[in-house]
């Protein structure tokens, strides 16, 4: 297989969100797309108890040369795809640097401490400013809202993958996406996912 050049090698990407948002699926879909391009992929993710409303993170290491550790070293994320806004900041604290870029879904999921009134969820305006301050580039899209229009908020994760394709850092082909998503998924669902992917692409181009 032909090796494809990457924006950086290894390319370090974090997909983050809250348990139940489809973080793991997003990381596997993207990983498989990269694997189909002949790239070495390592994914590290949080499973189990952390899924129960906790913050979740998948680390993707994409390289044309070798396999890397399933945990990205501190400060070395090139891209953060965030399904939830405050998770963006949490990941930036540990894995961000001045060159890090971010695609952020703007739909908040309130931590239980915010629901109970013990903690404060910052305003979206503040969050945007802070995220911009900590990144080289930040795209904000309302993927959940678009996903609800598509019929199910769970499509938010695929929409973010579509948006990532729009950035152009990685050799992401729609045909690879279709091939990956078609494995073990009924046809109508594949269609809906393709639509979500395309909508994500459109959303990021519109930013």
């Amino acid at each position: 297989m032909e090796k494809t050049p990457l924006a950086s090698d290894p390319y370090n990407l974090v997909i983050t969100g809250v348990g139940g948002q489809g973080n793991v699926m997003a990381s596997r879909v993207l990983g498989n797309m990269m694997s189909r391009k002949g790239l070495n992929v390592t994914i590290g993710e949080t499973f189990g108890a952390s899924q129960r409303g906790g913050s979740v993170m998948s680390h993707l290491r994409i390289s044309s040369e070798t396999s890397w550790s399933p945990q990205i070293p501190k400060g070395k994320a090139h891209m953060i795809v965030a399904l939830e806004p405050i998770e963006t900041v949490r990941v930036l604290r540990d894995y961000g640097g001045p060159e890090t870029r971010v695609i952020c879904n703007t739909r908040p999921i309130h931590p239980v401490g915010v629901i109970s009134g013990d903690q404060v969820y910052p305003s979206l305006e503040e969050l945007r400013n802070w995220i911009k301050e900590l990144t080289a580039t930040a795209w904000f899209i309302d993927a959940t809202d678009a996903a609800v229009r598509l019929g199910d908020p769970i499509f938010g994760n695929i929409m973010m993958i579509g948006a990532l394709a729009g950035v152009g850092d990685l050799p992401m082909d729609r045909s690879d996406f279709e091939a990956v998503i078609s494995q073990g998924m009924p046809k109508p669902k594949v269609e809906a996912n393709l639509k979500a992917y395309d909508m994500g692409l459109e959303l990021i181009e519109a930013v």
């Binding site: 129960r52 409303g53 900041v89 401490g113 910052p122």
Partner: peptide
Amino acid sequence: YIKRAGELAAVAAPGRDLIF
């Protein structure tokens, strides 16, 4: 950067306790 990101995370990223 590390200092600023730490400061911002302290206010911008309230922790997520595990919940049912």
